[in-house]
Design a protein around this nucleic acid. Structure first.
Length: 354
DNA sequence: AAAAAGTACAACCGCCTAAGG
DNA sequence: CCCTTAGGCGGTTGTACTTTT
């Protein structure tokens, strides 16, 4: 069964929006909120389908959208998150306030992807093209560790994006709600809207850091229950009263589809103290075990490319650096390991300075 | 100055998922 | 359960604009 296209019914308008159309849509939403998108065009006097209206609003007319050139920081964030989670534009967009997934996607396709390609890096794998089929070190264990990390982080980011979506749905006035999401400090967000508070970003990396894989940071720990077999799988999460840690671990609540009663307990327990959490999720146990193994930073970062030493056309881009070379291949094969560290450090910066 | 090629981005398309009947 | 619908997502296209030849 194929569904008829929404715009094929009743000779609705397609193509670019006119300023008059925009005005009608804006005025209607300002007054009534969008409500049911399908019903909106008729009520607002627009010859458009609901879907077209929704896209126009979310990608262009919303008052909390930032337009114009992407900043250095934004470029950095996009590339780093893309290296971790791929083309999950909506998930990436949750880390770039006031940017839409569509805008980020376009920017990636028209700017960043080309830049990486030009320097000989596969924009999908973030590895040098000549090495895209295998890991740099050839060490399958390290690759597996990395894979686990990426898997975990991907799930976390997706869950986070879902949280944002869900919280948006709960607010009746779309304009008001989007202001809340984009600008209010986490603690000011209505409890029913965002529980737990939205994590800053890359918190699984932060958890690893706390575990001692990356640094000697202290103050919280994340570890299996003594005597417990991770296969069971039961873990204890011991949390310091540290909001960033709380946020990072909080996502587990989402990722593992915690049962209602546990969610309640979780919400009552957070953001401090200790709790035991049981999950049936096998991959979670695998990931957890993999990350619990002591893995040196140099191994973890294997497989990531240096994108900092790239000879960019754009002098303002973070891809522009001092190690300028004419040929992308040369750049990548030069001191790859050292550059990997630089690359990963930039991710750490992102973790530590969200 | 005009045509061709390249670029940027808004908008569309089709698929997927969740929710509700 | 199954079906329908709304809304979200990522991929792709169309077109206006800019740069190059």
């Amino acid at each position: 069964m194929s569904r008829s296209r929404c715009c094929e019914k009743g000779g609705l308008k397609k193509g670019p929006w006119t300023p008059e159309d925009d005005q009608k849509l804006l005025a209607y939403i300002k007054e009534h909120g969008h409500g049911n998108w399908r019903a909106l065009p008729a009520k607002a006097g627009l010859q458009r389908c609901g879907k077209s209206c929704r896209l126009r609003w979310t990608n262009y007319l919303r008052p909390d959208i930032k337009r114009g050139k992407f900043s250095l920081q934004e470029e950095q964030t996009i590339i780093q998150l893309h290296a971790l989670i791929g083309n999950r534009w909506s998930a990436i967009a949750t880390h770039l306030p006031k940017r839409t997934d569509n805008e980020i996607k376009n920017y990636w396709n028209t700017h960043l992807k080309k830049r990486l390609t030009k320097m000989g890096i596969d924009p999908m794998t973030h590895k040098p093209k000549k090495d895209a089929l295998g890991s740099v070190s050839g060490d399958s264990k390290d690759a597996a560790n990395l894979s686990h990390m990426v898997q975990w982080e991907r799930a976390r980011l997706e869950a986070e994006a879902r949280l944002v979506r869900e919280s948006k749905l709960l607010v009746s006035n779309p304009i008001q709600q989007q202001v809340i999401i984009s600008s209010a400090p986490a603690q000011n967000i209505n409890k029913t809207l965002a529980q737990p508070a939205l994590p800053p970003c890359l918190d699984v990396l932060k958890a690893l850091q706390l575990q001692g894989l990356w640094s000697k940071s202290t103050g919280a720990s994340i570890f299996p229950v003594a005597g417990d077999d991770l296969e069971s799988p039961t873990f204890t999460l011991s949390l310091a009263a540290n909001s960033s840690v709380t946020c990072g671990v909080g996502i587990i609540r989402e990722v593992c589809q915690m049962p209602e009663e546990l969610k309640e307990r979780w919400d009552n327990t957070m953001p401090s103290q200790e709790m035991t959490y049981t999950t049936e999720s096998a991959w979670f146990a695998d990931s957890f075990r993999a990350m619990s193994e002591s893995t040196p930073l140099s191994n973890i970062v294997e497989g990531f490319t240096d994108i900092l030493a790239y000879n960019s056309d754009d002098k303002n881009s973070f891809l522009a650096g001092d190690n300028i070379m004419e040929n992308g291949d040369k750049t990548c094969s030069g001191n790859f390991e050292e550059n990997n560290n630089t690359y990963w450090n930039s991710i750490l910066n992102l973790v530590n300075n969200p």
